[in-house]
């Protein structure tokens, strides 16, 4: 596994939200990003589950309102990014 968790996280988020990896910052949120709609909210969670082999609780979906919150959620499940 050559890539760091960090890199894998940003690449996953970028692929789902159709952003450049460098443009993914902590502040990216559904409010300021058109592609972050309700379908991609689910896609983000599912893609991170696939990428890191973790199971994220579905009730956290609604609470995740930024990239920073996504990172916190992953950290709670043992993935440091």
């Amino acid at each position: 596994m050559g890539k760091t968790n960090d890199r894998r996280f940003y690449e996953t988020v970028a692929a789902i939200l159709q952003l450049q990896v460098d443009d993914v910052t902590d502040e990216i949120s559904p409010e300021n990003t058109d592609t972050w709609d309700s379908l991609n909210q689910i896609n983000l969670m599912s893609a991170l589950e696939q990428e890191f082999g973790v199971t994220l609780p579905i009730d956290s979906l609604e609470a995740v309102d930024s990239v920073a919150a996504l990172k916190d959620l992953l950290a709670q499940h043992g993935v440091r990014v």
Binding site: T12, A15, Q18, A47
Partner: peptide
């Protein structure tokens, strides 16, 4: 066929 791979190919 992960979500990421599908999205990248679509783009």
């Amino acid at each position: 066929p992960t979500i990421v791979n599908i999205n990248r190919a679509a783009e």
